[in-house]
């Protein structure tokens, strides 16, 4: 299990990660979402042992990660801009990783390369951005590690490749119980694959919850009342966003569906419906609560 306790990382005067406390349980896909500059990449670099926390502790199975080769051998980090040696080929890269990761599966590497229609002998520098991402994912999966830290890995992959990567990760989770931690802005992708989501904003963590719980716990209500209503008319509800246009009201709120239903029916609306929220909508509403509302600049 990955455990972060009050992890803080500063770059000069900037606090990139601010007292993050979270747990990532094994065998689950952890999605790391957040606004630009929220500290997602920094958190992943901390997890990968590239950076050392200034404060707090970051452990995997109770052991610190930084300069711990035993732990790092169980992890693979795919950065947002993965580095490849000049003039190297996937096969040479395989050879390099195979000499570093003890459980590297060469047969699986070649099988996946073939599956993704990638030539192992071709120079990586001639590959497209998406193909390079595919090579990184293949190396990560073939490395036989327990933890994969992927930064914007789906960015640049075509839909087919995205599905294939998701399938691979799902299969490895099922077979080997690996724990991918994926940072992405593409919340639609994360929604499909993540079990657990951590939302970062300005270096701090807003929440970290199971996706299923979160989906069940966040709702959108559209209702029409005979007389105008205000936010204050619903004191028992945890409203994230409230929009009223005459008697028509749209609300985004947290809470159980039954509780919301009871509250709405108690006010006898002319019409009302409960709609499920996408992860993207949850992200927008949650960050808006803490003051991240760029669209106000535009409208």
């Amino acid at each position: 299990m990955i455990e972060a306790i009050s992890v803080t990382k500063r770059f000069d005067q900037i606090i990139a990660v601010n007292e993050i406390t979270s747990q990532i349980r094994p065998g689950a896909v952890f999605g790391l979402v957040g606004s630009n500059g929220a500290g997602k990449s920094t958190f992943l670099r901390l997890l990968a042992g590239v950076l050392k926390p200034d404060e707090g502790s970051l452990t995997i199975d109770g052991q610190p990660i930084f300069e711990n080769t035993g732990i790092k051998r169980r992890c693979f980090y795919i950065s947002d801009e993965q580095y490849f040696f000049p003039n190297t080929t996937p096969d040479a890269l395989r050879s390099f990783y195979a000499s570093i990761y003890p459980n590297f599966d060469n047969a699986r590497f070649f099988h996946l390369m073939e599956g993704f229609s990638l030539d192992p002998k071709r120079k990586i520098s001639t590959f497209s951005k998406g193909m390079k991402k595919q090579v990184s994912v293949i190396c990560a999966i073939s490395a036989g590690v327990e933890y994969i830290f992927a930064d914007e890995t789906f960015d640049g992959l075509d839909p087919v490749a995205r599905q294939a990567v998701k399938g691979l990760l799902a299969a490895d989770i099922a077979e080997r119980g690996i724990t991918p931690v994926i940072a992405s802005h593409n919340l639609r992708e994360l929604e499909d694959i993540c079990d657990h989501v951590g939302l970062l904003h300005r270096g701090g963590i807003l929440f970290s919850r199971d996706l299923e719980d979160m989906m069940q716990d966040a709702h959108k209500v559209q209702a029409a009342f005979s007389a105008p209503v205000t936010r204050e008319d619903f004191p028992e509800l945890d409203i994230l966003r409230f929009e009223a246009r005459g008697s028509l009201v749209t609300m985004t709120l947290r809470g159980r569906a039954e509780q919301i239903e009871a509250a709405m029916q108690a006010r006898t609306p002319l019409f009302w419906e409960l709609l499920p929220l996408s992860l993207e909508e949850i992200f927008i509403d949650e960050t808006e609560v803490v003051g991240y509302d760029i669209k106000r600049l535009l409208f």
């Binding site: 670099r45 990968a48 042992g49 590239v50 300069e67 080769t69 035993g70 790092k72 051998r73 992890c75 693979f76 980090y77 950065s79 801009e81 993965q82 580095y83 570093i100 990761y101």
Partner: peptide, 16 residues
């Protein structure tokens, strides 16, 4: 001196 490269090398399970 390259963030890209240092992310690669320092994430490897090799002591500094």
């Amino acid at each position: 001196n390259s963030r890209k490269q240092i992310d690669f090398y320092h994430s490897l399970p090799v002591r500094r």
